[in-house]
Structure formats: C-alpha cells, structure tokens
Nucleic acid binder design. Sequence first.
DNA 1: ACCTGAACACCGTTCAAGT
DNA 2: ACCTGAACACCGTTCAAGT
Lengths: 186, 186
Amino acid sequence: MADTKDTILAAALSIVQARGYNGLSFRDLAKSVGIKSASIHHYFPSKADLGAALVRRYRTSAVDALQAVRDRSPNAGVCLREYADGFRQTLADSNRMCLCGVLGAEYDELPEPVKAEVAAFVDDNVTWIANVLSSSATLSSKEACSQATAIYAALSGAQLAARTRADITVFDTAAEGYRCSGLIPQ
Amino acid sequence: MADTKDTILAAALSIVQARGYNGLSFRDLAKSVGIKSASIHHYFPSKADLGAALVRRYRTSAVDALQAVRDRSPNAGVCLREYADGFRQTLADSNRMCLCGVLGAEYDELPEPVKAEVAAFVDDNVTWIANVLSSSATLSSKEACSQATAIYAALSGAQLAARTRADITVFDTAAEGYRCSGLIPQ
DNA sequence: ACCTGAACACCGTTCAAGT
DNA sequence: ACCTGAACACCGTTCAAGT
C-alpha cells in the first residue's frame, strides 16, 4: 500500500509525460488521487517542489535500471540496444516521451530546482553511455563522452520526432540509421 | 508597416519557442502587441487558430529558406551543414528551440489543427533532406527517406539536449559525432 | 472593421479552520 | 499530521457594446 506522496508522484509522472509541466493541473492531479487540490500542497508546498521531486525520483530510478542493464551484460551493443528499447517502450505506451525530454522542451519556463534535476538526468545518461562505450572499445574518456552525448541526443530526437508524427516506426527508422552509420555500436 | 495580424504572429512565435504552447498567454501576448486580449480573438477566434496559423507560417517560411539553400549549392555536405547551422542559430538566440520541436514535446495536448501543421513540418524537412541526399549519392528513395528521418531526428535531439543543458557545445559535440560516424555526409 | 470591459469557468497558491 | 472550503490573481473564451 503506497503512501499518498507516492500516489501523487505516480499520477503526476504520467500526466507530465503526456501533457508537460504546464499541462499538470493540481485540480486534475488531486481528482485522480482522490483528494482536494489544496491537500497536495501539504506534501509539496509548491508546483516547483512537486516537479523537482518528480524528476529526482525518475532520475534515481533510471540510474538503478541502467546499472542493472550493465550488470546483465558488459557488451556495448547489447547494453545500447536495451537502452534504445527503453525510449521505444515509452513511445509504445500511449505515445509518451521521456520525462526529461518533455521538460527539456519546456526548459525556459521551468522553476530553477526542476531545471537542475533535468540537467542532472542528462548528465547521468551521458555518463552511463560513456562507461558502456569505454568497456567495449579503446576510447579516451573525452572521446567516449562526446560519442555518448551524440547517442543520447540522437535517441532523444528519435523519440521526439516519432511522437510528433505519432508514428513509432519513425523511431525505429532513426535508430536503425544510427546503427548502420556506426553512431551506435552494434 | 506590418499589419496587426503579422505583429501578433511574430510576437507569438518567440513566446512559444521560449515557453511552449501552454506558456503562451493571450493577455501577455496582447500586452506585447499593445492591444487588449479580447482583441486578439478578432484575428484568431481561438488559441488553436492562432497556433495553427503560427505553425503554417513558420513551415512555409522554412520551406522557402531550405529551397534557397539548395539553390545556392547542390552539394549534400554543404546543404546539411547550413541546415544544421539553422538549428544551432536558434539555440544561440536565447536558448530557443525549433517551434516544432517544442510543439512535438507538447504534442498530446495540442489542438488537432496544430498537430496537423507540426506533423507536416516534419514531413517537409525529411523530404528536403532526402532530396539533398539523393542528389549527391545513389540511393533508393526509400533509403534516402530513412537516412533523412535519422538525420532530422538526430539534429532535433541535439537541439533538445543542448537546450536542456543550457549549453550550446552539447549541440556542436553531437553534430560533430553525426558527421564523424557518417550519419550526416561531410 | 476593429477594439473593449465585463463575465464565465479555469489555474496555482494561501490560509484559517476543521479532524 | 492530514485534509478542506474559501479567497486571491491568473488563464482562454464569449459577448454585448462602443468607434
């Protein structure tokens, strides 16, 4: 039995992934949790607090999941195929996007603490990809970081473009192109 | 002397690029134009009408600009460098994003006519890139379209990731990675 | 044709009041 | 500790009224 705070964050996650930070209404969120909107402020004083907590939770859970992927296989091709599949699954689930992809597009209007968490998510992802690349090829840490940045950006963009066309095959086509060109190791 | 309709659209463009569709307020927009918010409804009956007109204008102006790039040089490497530079310049101008990148992230909550225009923008871009690729290499039209999709997605993602980190070098690093791997022809 | 003030149901936020 | 109703200044939208 999850406590109310967790229930609020879980409901907020799918709303923000679908509608963005600005599309998240305390009244709608409260309705889906079964309390009044004023009650949410008891757990999260402001919308910024809720947003920052939401991204922090999402980020640490992603870090754990990525660690598990690396533990299952040290092979870069295998790891990055699972990584890309994570982006794909979010699309397959109601044409949603990565939380931090949505928030990146809204970046200018986000409260400062939310910005910081979103930026940290990107850094976490790039670091993980760079480690995966380094374990399967001889790269300087700078080279690994550059390629990791390109891979993260490319997959984020494939998700964004596919969502924009409401067509998951756009994601598959782009990801295949990344592998063919060698941007993502196979 | 631009007419009021043009002034409204020009002001709306920079607001939406910075704050997104949901961040666009008729009251703020009216204030920056120097009229009352109710007056905007005289030109655009609803926010959806304004949004659709905004994207349509942006799209046709992009199509013209891309045509001009192709007219200046038939070389794919040159064309795509100018193309990537367009994404870069938007970032350099106050960390803004392509209008349709921002709207893609908000896709689920957009009114139907706005969705249609945003999707058409992606198609226009992919078609242009595919034509550029075809003119410098022997590719089947399917291959050209697939690679064009990957290139468009990758550059969109580079812009999104750079904005998210509020760091334009993220864009440069990703774009360089796309060229090194051969995803984007040099 | 172009603009406006006033009204409507929404939004995040605050707060005094309840249990 | 947890929740609520009522109030505040916001939002898009409508409309009768002005020029």
